[in-house]
Design a protein around this nucleic acid. Structure first.
Lengths: 107, 107
DNA sequence: CATCTATTTGGCTTTTATGCCAAATATATA
DNA sequence: TATATATTTGGCATAAAAGCCAAATAGATG
């Protein structure tokens, strides 16, 4: 396989992976409404704060989030609104996904 | 946390997870150009055919792919063209992703 | 400066995902 | 019916991801 395409697929997969977890999806959704600090996101997710911090770090590293420190808080925000389209696409797939019984067609 | 939202995040994460692997990204990209059988995708990916078959099964179960049998072959195809937008979004994130050195802004 | 709050990091265990081989299944064709 | 081709499935070993606790760091505030 073409090594360039291999690299590109790897990069894309890494970025997609950074969203491929229920807590991270939830975080992304929350941030589409505006920036939040770690505590608030921790309340939302309902996991240990260290776990949430690690999720945020994964999302930041991948490019989905940026962060700004103000006082004691780190405020995370979404870098691109395109994420919302991303979710619309995913929800569409969910509608056509085979739920044990076969179904057809899509958009 | 609201259990409905929890469920929805889980569903979304499962669908996203079905793309979160370099081989599956590559497969998705190839299929955006039209249906392919397992052998062809195996050549493309360069893994064992049983591995590729399992990737395809994950993608099918999640709703991304559908399959049609003709003769000895199983032809897989993309269910929704929205996947291509999905990748455009991902590539955009890659452009703004921090590559060790900090960078700013986006779309 | 001591202390408090917010967040991150290290370390470790448990869970989940991946990949190959071998075997099974399904279908075409001699 | 025997055989060949295409694909899937089971099983197992290895690798990667997740989650918690405890400890470290960073910055505010008394």
């Amino acid at each position: 396989m073409n090594p360039q395409i291999e690299t590109r697929s790897k990069i894309r997969a890494d970025i997609i992976k950074a969203l491929a977890h229920p807590s991270r999806v939830l975080i992304a959704e929350a941030l589409s409404d505006g920036e939040r600090c770690v505590q608030d996101l921790t309340k939302l997710v309902g996991a240990d704060i260290s776990t949430v911090s690690k999720h945020l770090s994964i999302m930041k590293k991948s490019g989905w989030l940026e962060v700004e420190k103000r006082g004691l808080n780190q405020f995370y925000r979404l870098r691109c609104p395109c994420l919302l389209e991303f979710f619309r696409c995913v929800d569409l797939i969910n509608q056509v996904r085979p739920k044990n019984i076969e179904n057809q067609g899509c958009c």
